[in-house]
Design a binder for these strands. Structure first.
Lengths: 96, 96
DNA sequence: ATAGAATATCTAAATATATGAATACTTCGA
DNA sequence: TCGAAGTATTCATATATTTAGATATTCTAT
């Protein structure tokens, strides 16, 4: 994937207010304060399938990861990946 | 405008490959190497109205600015604004 | 095995975005 | 003033995204 495609994917994932609010709720790599998908959906005021869709977009962009714990799934932000992408883009931009 | 709306606007502007390529071509605050809108359109392989549309999105997001010089208009990236936004988002994300 | 809970996928409808053609506007030189 | 060049806006169409409801899948406990 080219730089442009890479950053485009990341920024597209970050471009929806509902996904930003979601990132604001999800815990960092430690799983403290994690919520189930159902609880997240309720908190965000969207349906569970809709939330799954957004989580999928964030996951495909590499911004979140998850751990299955029994019946439930706990998502968390991969902050280190996010920061690497932002730093990479900043560098890419300045190099021109 | 709330933080979420603010960052959403910026990231949406950065989410299209054609706009990233455009940012890669536009000069920084100094006007060295500036191209006219027509030349930019040709270089990007899109029509001039389409380019104007994308420039408008970037401008509304605060990412680019322009100077009129006679008949021509020269756009440039407001790198300092871009970096402030990225840094702000990073801080916003980590604070959660 | 089976039921129930949690999450993901599929489907269809509504909305938003991207694009080019046509046209309007602006500026400069003749 | 007029014409030409450069840029912006309008409009219609094509494509993509968002959303919820219905359904499928996965896991656990009985």
């Amino acid at each position: 994937m080219s730089d442009v495609e890479q950053y485009s994917t990341v920024f597209k994932a970050l471009s929806a207010p509902v996904r930003l609010r979601l990132l604001g709720i999800l815990p960092g790599d430690d799983r403290e304060g994690a919520l189930s998908v159902c609880n997240l959906a309720e908190k965000l005021g969207i349906s569970q399938p809709c939330l799954s869709h957004h989580l999928n977009i964030l996951r495909c962009a590499g911004l979140v990861r998850f751990k299955k714990d029994g019946c439930s799934t706990f998502y968390f932000v991969d902050r280190s990946y996010v920061e690497r992408q932002l730093a990479g883009f900043r560098k890419w931009m300045v190099e021109r």
